[in-house]
Design a protein around this nucleic acid. Structure first.
Length: 857
DNA sequence: GCAAGGTC
C-alpha cells in the first residue's frame, strides 16, 4: 500500500483535517515538538486505498538571517547589510522541525500540503518540501506533491479540496522570500545605525535600542501624527442659539448649528427675540435601526477588548490563545467575519443556555433565532465563537471578561437588530428653524445580549402639533469653542493599521507592543497612545530627512511590488534588486543627513557632557568624569571626549585609590551584600593591561605584581567550584568582607566586623591557601579567646571556623580536590622567584613577568 | 542587541 504524507500549518488544524478526512477514524501519536501525527487508511486519487499520515509544522520552519560574519554590530558597517549574504536558519532549533518532517516522511510516496491558503502558507509549502526532499523521491514533481486549497474547515470544503488538489505556487512563495529579505536588510541596517549613532550621545536618552521597521515605524507615525494634530490645533470660538419652548419644556437645537461670527449670531438672536411664539412646521417620525454585529474576527476582538474592556491587544490575544487551547473558544486568529454556510449556530447557542450569567439571553434567542449578517470570508478560519461553556469561577477576571464578551457577541450576531423610533419636530421662528428629536426604543434586539451597548433612556417630547403655535419660554445665545482631537486610542490605531495594511491580524498586537516597549509611546487611561519625547523626535526626524520612511504608504508600495512577484508578472530577482537599491539609497541619504535628526535630539535631550554627576578622575587629564546612569551605564570624560563602559550594578568611587598603571580613580562595583563585588579601574576594565586579564575584568583579575588591589596581592586560593577561578579577598565593602571568585559567582562571607584583613606571604600547610591576618577592634573581637588579631587559614584554622560562612563545604572541597599540589608549584616555576606565584592556590598566570615587562615597555 | 511573519 502506498503512503501519503500530509502537512498542515499548525497542530490544531492537522487534528481537524484528519478528523474530517478519516471520518473520525484515525489514530494519533504526539511528537516531542508539540506536533501530532494522525494516521488512517483510505482512497487517494487513482491509487486505491493508501496509508495517510497527517502532521503539521508550527508556522514557519525557517527564518532568514545574516551569515554569522555580519552579526557583529561593532565590526560591520550597517550599509553592508543591504548586500551581504543571508542564510536560512531553522526558526526554532529546539523543535528540530526539519528532522521531524523528514522522519514522518519516511516511506511516503506522495506529499499533500495543507498549509494555510495565503502567501505565507505557500512559502511554508516549500519549506516543507525542502525538509523532506531527501526522503520523498521526486518531491518537486507535480506527480508527487500536491496542494490542497480550502477556504473553510468544514466537511464539505475539506473533502472538496481533497478531490481537487492543485500544486504549490512558487511565485507566491518567492514573494514571501522577497518580503523577508527586504524587511531583514532594511530593518536591521536602520536599527543598527540609529542605535549606534544615538547611543552614548545623550545622557538622559533612556533607550538602549532605537529600532526602525517597515511596520513599527509607520505605526508610531500614526500616534505622532495625532499628537501633532493636537499640538497644532487652534481652538475657534463659535456661537449658537438655544430655544426653550413647549410644555413640558424642551431645549431645541438650532438648524444652523453654529456660527463663527458673534455679531451675526447676535443679529439672528435679535430677530428671533422679535417673536413670542414659534410655529410647529412639521412633526415626523420614522423607524431607525442599529445593525447587530458581524461574526467576530481577530481584529474586531482586539478592538473591543481594548476599547470596551481596557485589555490591550497583546494581552487579549494571549487570553484568547489560552481560551482556545483549553477548548472554550474556536481558533482566535482569523480574518473571516462571516459564518460558514453549514455552521451549526444552534449547537453553539444550545451550549450557552445552561449558563448562570447569560443563559436567559441564550434561551430567549433560541426561540427568536435570526440569520446572521454576511461579511468577509477570508478563507482562513471560521469566526471566533464559543466552543464550550465556561463558568465565571473557571477563570481569572480578565479571562472571564474576554470569554463572556465572545459569548455575548456570538449571541448578538444571531439576534434582531436594535429598533427605535425617532420623532423630529421642526419649529420655525421667523426665518430661523429649530428642531427637537426624541428617540424611543422599540426593540432592544442584540443589545439584550450585548448589554454594554444598551440604548439610552427613552426621550420625551412635548405634544407638538403641526401647524400650531407654541409659546417661546426663552431664547439665548450660547458660546463655545472647537476642541482639539483626542489622542489616538488603541482601537483607532488598530483600525488605521488594518486600513493601511500595516501588519497582519497576528502581528498588529506585536507592533503595538514593540513601540510601547521601545519607549516610543505610552498607554494612558482609556488606552490612549501618547507618544514619548523619543517617539516624537524620531518621527519628526524622519519627516525632516525622508518623510517616506515613516509613511504608511511605504509598506503598501512594497506590498504592491511583492504582489507582482506573487502574480508571476515580475521576476523575483529584478524586484528584489530594485527594492534593495532604492532602500540602500534612502539609507545612505539618511546617514548623510542624520545631523538634522540629531538637532531635534539635541533640543530634547541633554548632551552627555551636561548630564550625570562628577564622579571619579580621568587618568589622562585628571579631571572629574561624568557618571551616566542610564543604560548603558558609563563614565564620560568631556575633556578627552572618551567613554568608559561600566558594569551593570552599583558603582561607587573607591575611596581615594588610584590605578598604578594609568592613574584613573578606582571604582567599587557591587550587586549588593550577597552578590558579586570587586574594585576596578575604568580604563583597565575597557582596555585590559595584561594579556591574561579579560576585557571587562576588575582588579581581582589583574596580575599587577605590587598593586594592593590586584589578584596577585589579594588572591587566596583556587575557586571551590569552577575550574579557572581564584578566590580573591574583597575589601570594598569593609567592614563586610568576602572572598569572591573572579570567574564565577562563588562568594564566601567571612570575618564580619573586622577592621582590617591582610593576605600574608605564607601558605597554609594543610590546603595551600594563602594565610590571612584578621584584626578586630579590642572591644569587638569575634575570636573565642577575645584576642584582637590572629593569622591563619580561612579554610583550615579552627579559630576562624565560626567566622567563615560555608567553611565546612569549602574545607572538604579543598581537601578533596588536592589542595596545594593542584597545578601549583610546577606552574609557578622559576619565573616566579618571589614565590608569589603560589599565592592563589597555585595557579599563577603563565609568563607573568614577561607580560608585565612587555606592558611597561 | 536588529525586521516581520508564521505559531506555541
Amino acid at each position: 500500500m502506498k503512503s501519503v504524507l500530509m502537512v498542515a500549518e499548525k497542530p490544531s488544524l492537522a487534528a481537524s483535517l484528519a478528523g474530517i478526512l478519516s471520518n473520525g477514524r484515525c489514530t494519533a501519536k504526539r511528537g516531542n515538538n508539540g506536533c501530532s501525527t494522525h494516521e488512517w487508511t483510505g482512497p487517494f486519487r487513482n491509487e486505491g486505498n493508501v496509508h495517510f499520515r497527517m502532521t503539521s509544522v508550527c508556522g514557519h520552519v525557517m527564518s532568514l538571517d545574516f551569515t554569522s560574519k555580519y552579526t557583529s554590530w561593532d565590526k560591520v558597517d550597517p550599509v553592508q547589510l543591504f548586500d551581504c549574504p543571508t542564510e536560512k536558519k531553522e526558526c526554532n532549533p529546539k523543535q528540530q522541525m526539519r528532522s521531524f518532517l523528514s522522519h514522518e516522511a519516511r516511506g511516503c510516496d506522495y506529499l499533500v500540503l495543507w498549509l494555510d491558503c495565503d502567501k505565507e502558507g505557500e512559502n511554508i509549502c516549500f519549506e516543507v518540501m525542502d525538509a523532506v526532499q531527501h526522503v520523498i523521491h521526486n518531491v518537486y514533481s507535480t506527480y508527487v506533491t500536491y496542494r490542497a486549497h480550502f477556504s473553510a474547515i468544514t466537511d464539505k470544503d475539506i473533502k472538496g479540496a481533497m478531490e481537487s488538489l492543485g500544486h504549490p505556487n512558487k511565485n507566491e512563495a518567492k514573494s514571501v522570500d522577497a518580503r523577508q529579505e527586504l524587511d531583514l536588510r532594511i530593518g536591521c541596517a536602520f536599527t543598527r545605525f540609529q542605535t549606534k549613532f544615538f547611543q552614548g550621545r545623550y545622557g538622559d536618552l533612556d533607550s538602549s535600542l532605537i529600532s526602525y521597521g517597515p511596520c513599527q515605524t509607520p505605526t508610531l507615525g500614526f500616534c505622532v501624527k495625532r499628537h501633532d494634530d493636537i499640538q497644532l490645533f487652534k481652538p475657534e470660538t463659535f456661537w449658537y442659539l438655544q430655544l426653550v419652548a413647549g410644555q413640558p419644556e424642551v431645549t431645541l437645537e438650532w438648524a444652523r448649528g453654529r456660527v463663527f461670527k458673534k455679531n451675526i449670531a447676535i443679529m439672528l438672536l435679535n430677530r428671533v427675540k422679535e417673536h413670542k411664539e414659534a410655529t410647529v412646521e412639521s412633526v415626523s417620525s420614522k423607524e431607525s435601526f442599529r445593525s447587530k454585529p458581524q461574526a467576530l474576527n481577530t481584529v474586531e476582538l482586539m478592538r473591543i477588548c481594548s476599547s470596551g474592556l481596557g485589555i490591550g491587544p497583546f494581552q487579549a490575544m494571549q487570553i484568547a490563545e489560552r481560551l482556545y487551547t483549553q477548548g472554550y473558544i474556536s481558533y482566535p486568529r482569523t480574518e473571516t467575519n462571516q459564518y460558514p454556510e453549514n455552521f451549526d449556530l444552534h449547537a453553539v447557542l444550545r451550549l450557552l443556555q445552561p449558563s448562570g450569567d447569560f443563559g436567559d439571553e441564550a434561551r430567549a434567542i433560541s426561540s427568536d433565532f435570526q440569520t446572521p449578517r454576511k461579511g468577509k470570508d477570508a478563507g482562513d478560519h471560521p469566526p471566533i465563537t464559543p466552543m464550550k461553556l465556561g463558568q465565571r469561577n473557571d477563570f481569572d477576571r480578565d479571562t472571564w471578561r474576554v470569554y463572556e464578551f465572545i459569548c455575548r457577541h456570538f449571541m448578538g450576531t444571531i439576534s434582531r437588530d436594535l429598533k427605535y423610533r425617532t420623532t423630529t419636530a421642526k419649529l420655525k421662528v421667523g426665518l430661523e428653524t429649530f428642531t427637537c428629536t426624541a428617540n424611543v426604543l422599540l426593540d432592544a434586539g442584540f443589545t439584550k445580549a450585548m448589554t454594554w451597548l444598551a440604548f439610552g433612556k427613552d426621550e420625551a417630547m412635548p405634544p407638538f402639533v403641526q401647524g400650531t403655535q407654541v409659546p417661546i419660554t426663552d431664547v439665548r445665545l450660547a458660546e463655545s469653542q472647537t476642541g482639539p482631537p483626542d489622542y489616538l486610542t488603541e482601537a483607532e490605531l488598530i483600525t488605521l493599521m488594518e486600513q493601511h495594511g500595516i501588519g497582519t491580524d497576528a502581528s498588529i498586537p506585536v507592533h503595538i507592543n514593540n513601540i510601547c516597549q521601545r519607549n516610543y509611546v505610552k498607554i494612558e487611561t482609556g488606552r490612549k497612545l501618547i507618544p514619548t519625547t523619543l517617539g516624537i523626535v524620531l518621527v519628526h526626524g524622519y519627516q525632516k530627512i525622508d518623510p517616506e520612511l515613516v509613511l504608511p504608504t511605504m509598506r503598501s508600495e512594497v506590498e504592491r511590488m511583492l504582489t507582482l512577484i506573487a502574480k508571476g508578472s515580475a521576476d523575483f530577482n529584478d524586484v528584489l534588486r530594485h527594492a534593495i537599491k532604492i532602500f540602500k539609497l534612502k539609507f545612505v541619504y539618511f546617514v548623510q543627513n542624520i545631523a538634522s535628526m540629531d538637532m531635534l535630539f539635541e533640543s530634547s535631550f541633554s548632551p552627555l557632557a551636561e548630564s550625570g554627576k562628577a564622579h571619579s578622575r580621568c587618568g589622562k587629564c585628571r579631571r572629574y568624569m561624568k557618571y551616566i546612569q542610564t543604560k548603558p551605564a558609563r563614565l564620560y570624560c568631556s575633556h578627552c571626549n572618551d567613554n568608559y563602559t561600566l558594569p551593570n550594578g552599583n558603582v561607587k568611587v573607591y575611596r581615594e585609590f588610584k590605578c598604578p598603571l594609568d592613574d584613573f580613580g578606582l571604582l567599587a562595583f557591587s550587586t549588593g551584600v550577597k552578590g558579586r563585588s570587586f574594585p576596578f579601574c575604568p580604563y583597565c576594565y575597557n582596555h585590559p593591561p595584561f594579556r591574561d586579564m579579560p576585557k571587562f575584568g576588575g582588579c581581582n583579575t589583574c596580575t599587577h605584581p605590587t598593586c594592593p588591589h590586584s589578584l596577585n596581592t589579594l588572591g587566596i586560593s583556587s575557586c571551590v567550584e569552577c575550574e579557572t577561578g581564584v578566590l580573591v579577598l574583597d575589601s570594598t565593602l569593609s567592614p563586610t568582607w568576602k572572598l569572591g571568585c573572579n570567574r564565577c559567582d562563588v562568594i564566601i562571607n567571612c570575618f564580619k566586623g573586622a577592621t582590617k584583613i591582610t593576605v600574608e606571604e605564607n601558605k597554609c600547610s594543610e590546603c595551600g591557601a594563602q594565610l590571612v591576618n584578621v584584626v578586630y577592634k579590642s572591644d569587638k573581637s569575634k575570636f573565642k579567646d577575645g584576642s584582637e588579631e590572629k593569622s591563619g587559614c580561612v579554610f583550615c584554622s579552627s579559630e576562624f571556623a565560626h567566622l567563615v560562612e560555608k567553611h565546612r563545604a569549602v574545607a572538604s572541597r579543598q581537601v578533596r580536590s588536592g589542595g596545594p599540589s593542584r597545578g601549583g608549584g610546577g606552574a609557578a616555576g622559576p619565573g616566579a622567584g618571589n614565590a608569589r606565584g603560589g599565592r592563589h592556590g597555585g595557579r599563577p598566570p603563565k609568563d607573568k613577568m614577561a607580560q608585565l615587562a612587555a606592558y611597561f615597555v
